[in-house]
Amino acid sequence: MLGFTPQQVNVMSMWQFMAAVEGYVKANSGEDTKMSDREADDLFEWLKSKE
Rank of each mutant, 00 (worst) to 15 (best):
F44R: 11
Y24P: 02
E45K: 07
S13M: 07
G3S: 14
K50P: 03
L47F: 08
M12V: 10
D37H: 01
A19Y: 08
M12D: 08
D42S: 07
V21Q: 04
G3R: 12
V11F: 11
A27F: 05
S13P: 00
M14P: 05
Q16N: 04
K50I: 08
F17V: 13
V25D: 04
D37L: 01
A27P: 02
F17D: 00
N28L: 11
E31G: 05
D41N: 03
Q16I: 12
D37E: 15
L2C: 13
D32C: 05
M35V: 03
G23V: 11
E45Y: 02
R38A: 07
L2A: 08
V9S: 06
A19E: 13
F17R: 06
N28M: 10
L43P: 00
L2Q: 03
D42V: 04
N10C: 04
F17W: 12
T33L: 12
N10L: 06
N10W: 04
G3I: 11
F4N: 06
F44N: 07
E31A: 13
E22K: 15
A27V: 05
M1K: 13
K26F: 09
L43Y: 06
V21C: 14
T5Q: 09
Q16S: 06
G3A: 12
A27R: 09
Q8E: 15
P6W: 10
F17L: 15
R38N: 03
E22P: 03
M12E: 05
S49E: 02
A20E: 12
A20C: 15
W15V: 14
L43Q: 09
S36Y: 02
